[in-house]
């Protein structure tokens, strides 16, 4: 599965995107954020405040309990500031 990052989450992680093999116990968007936090100090810094992280699964906004089964692309980003 591909994980993509935007704005300050991207800057803090240090990469725009990465391909990951999910452990079997990572089932939801919230699980993914918790698991990614353990991958490196940069990930831990970027995702240290879970409430500040928004998630989209296959380009649709998702809540932390959204299942990841079958997902191809999950995006993590801060609250949006368009318009």
């Amino acid at each position: 599965m591909r994980v993509v990052y935007f704005a300050w989450v991207r800057e803090r992680v240090g990469v725009e995107e990465e391909d990951v093999d999910l452990p079997a116990d990572v089932a939801t968007a919230g699980d993914l954020v918790d698991w990614l936090r353990t991958r490196s100090p940069n990930h831990a810094f970027a995702l240290e405040e879970p409430r500040a992280i928004r998630v989209a699964v296959d380009r649709v906004h998702a809540q932390p309990d959204a299942p990841l089964a079958g997902a191809r692309e999950v995006a993590l980003f801060p609250p949006m500031t368009g318009g």
Binding site: A7, P78, T81, G82
Partner: peptide, 11 residues
């Protein structure tokens, strides 16, 4: 809704 839902970020 654009302000809060559309995936844009300003630097």
């Amino acid at each position: 809704f654009l302000k809060t839902r559309a995936p844009f970020w300003k630097k």
